[in-house]
């Protein structure tokens, strides 16, 4: 397939997954606010950290409270990772590859964009934000389902999944990591009732509360981390995501497992292998935050390597807006 198209499909997929995850973070935080009266505005700052845009936020807003954080993460077009920016970018990408994806996928990408755009224009979601974020999550799920059921599972689809899985692995690591940030000033709270509520909220933001419950009864930090990092069957765990990403990468290149023909295969193979042979005890003793930090770093390097191996052109040409031809 065309390199440009592979690039677009990969990023379309990544940005839609990103939009969904941002909606998850916010929605769970909103729920958390309803459950407990202890936390105030301090509850909102970690969200900005999760998305990794703390310094941009600092430039644009004076303080982090519910309103400013929600705006920044949801509708702010100057934040490239806001839900609005993500779905807009995804739709522009989808538009440039409409002949590759199914028309149902394009329709859904378009509908998703219109959902967010209309909400941004009306500006009324703050009255009932939960419904809106649920709609965003569902719009993303619907897109995934449509992609799965209407598009041939060949090369373009594997780029789609590669993008989605790498993005999701990154976001799960950040969800987990933010809990670390959040706990620091509140160490006295460890093991308290509030803490239990927060870990449960964390599981919910990864849609993993019920799935976790089926496997484990008590919520302990270590078990939650184990579940979100190393559970092989839960579709948002890091190990699950990187394994599926590796599957897709190998489907694209045709290289057998434990061999490699290019840098992305080597880096992704290393990452899955190290997760395959990790234990949660080892991770915790080395420091959860340090571990997650290294995961994010390695995911970034994989992303760079993918760009270089598959998308980069030897002589890039700029794409200027085209001349008009009326006929």
């Amino acid at each position: 397939m065309l390199s440009r198209v592979a690039n677009s499909i990969y990023w379309m997929s990544r940005t839609l997954e990103r939009a969904e995850n941002v909606a998850r973070f916010i929605d769970v935080n909103l729920n958390l606010m309803l459950d407990t009266d202890v936390v105030g505005n301090s509850q909102w700052e970690p969200l900005v950290m999760t998305s990794g845009d703390r310094s941009l936020f600092g430039k644009l807003y004076r303080e982090s409270n519910k309103d400013s954080v929600m705006r920044f993460l949801t509708f702010d077009r100057s934040n490239p990772n806001s839900i609005y920016s993500c779905v807009l970018a995804a739709r522009e990408n989808a538009r440039s590859i409409r002949e590759i994806i199914s028309s149902e996928m394009w329709e859904q990408a378009n509908r998703f964009y219109m959902l967010v755009r209309d909400a941004a224009e009306k500006n009324t979601i703050f009255n009932n934000p939960h419904d809106f974020y649920t709609d965003v999550k569902m719009a993303s799920h619907l897109f995934d389902g449509i992609a799965d059921a209407t598009m041939s599972h060949n090369e373009p689809w594997h780029f789609l999944r590669l993008g989605k899985m790498l993005e999701r692995a990154d976001k799960t690591s950040r969800i987990l990591d933010v809990k670390y940030y959040f706990l620091l000033p509140n160490l006295y709270g460890v093991g308290s009732a509030i803490d239990g509520v927060q870990w449960a909220a964390l599981l919910r933001s990864a849609s993993s509360f019920e799935m976790y419950r089926k496997r484990r009864r008590r919520i302990t930090p270590e078990r939650v981390a184990d579940f979100l990092i190393l559970d092989r069957h839960f579709p948002r765990s890091i190990i699950y995501c990187v394994s599926r990403a590796e599957e897709s990468l190998r489907a694209i290149t045709g290289t057998a497992y434990s061999f490699y023909s290019n840098l992305p295969e080597r880096l992704l193979g290393q990452l899955t292998s190290s997760l395959n042979y990790s234990s949660i005890e080892e991770i915790m003793s080395g420091g959860l935050h340090e571990f997650l930090d290294s995961i994010q770093f390695r995911l970034n390097r994989i992303d760079d390597a993918i760009s270089e191996s598959f998308f980069a052109f030897p002589n890039p040409q700029s794409n200027k807006p085209s001349p008009v031809q009326y006929q």
Binding site: M1, S3, R4, V5, I97, R98, E99, I100, N319
Partner: peptide, 13 residues
């Protein structure tokens, strides 16, 4: 392009 099942390319492709 989609209806014909052919690649849609830009000059830079």
């Amino acid at each position: 392009a989609q209806q014909m099942g052919v690649e849609l390319v830009e000059g830079s492709d």
